[in-house]
Amino acid sequence: MRKTIEVSHLNVSYFGNKALKDVSFSFQTGNLIGIIGPNGAGKSTLIKAMLHLIPTDSGNVSINDQPIKNIRRNIAYVPQRSDIDWDFPIVVKDTVLLGTFPNIKLFRRPSKADKEWAAHCLEKVGMQDYATRQIGELSGGQQQRVFLARALAQKADFFFLDEPFVGIDVASEEMIIDILRDLRDEGKTVMVVHHDLSKVEAYFDELILLNKEVIESGPVQEVVRPDIMSKAYSMDFNMLQQMGAHNV
């Protein structure tokens, strides 16, 4: 059995407009994979389409030769912060506990062991002191760490994170990338939609450069080259990196 994550000829359209054109790539599992590209390139659409969260026109996605629907419980998804209702009546520890739900049988409730495991995951992201806070009372970085803890609680092998570093503090960003690296070192596969070009080389092993179609994919040093990057971004790449390119 090949240990790969494979996407072939994925097409997605919204009301007749092509959002993704014939997207194909494959990576070894056990890597930290970044998805980058300009605004509107379809980065979030790509991971949503891969997980069949939105309808696709055509294409095939498999992980270790299994279709996605066979391994769903083994996939942890961290949504964009803007997708969450932060006024929902739920506190931090209960939010993390939700991560155990995929592995709890129908009609069953979380056990004591599940609760302890969730508390442990909360400690891993350094948020144990906030366990009884409502999630809307946290800062952006804290919220992101809580949602990462929820993903950890799922004990998954595949992690998909949609823009986890947008609008968060430096300390939280460092903590999150450290945890993602640890996951990778444990043999897990982590896919991250990412914005900030200045840190791409430091963060990822593999990269997909996307602008509705795959411009380039492969090891990070082979993708982050001025001639390739400028195919996706209209501006000069060196200038982009100097600017930090937070809002490209």
């Binding site: 949503k48 769903r72 419980r73 998804y77 939700l98 995929p102 929820r150």
Partner: peptide, 10 residues
Amino acid sequence: FDATMAAAYG
């Protein structure tokens, strides 16, 4: 609370 996560895990 989070329909996307719910759909993601099936």
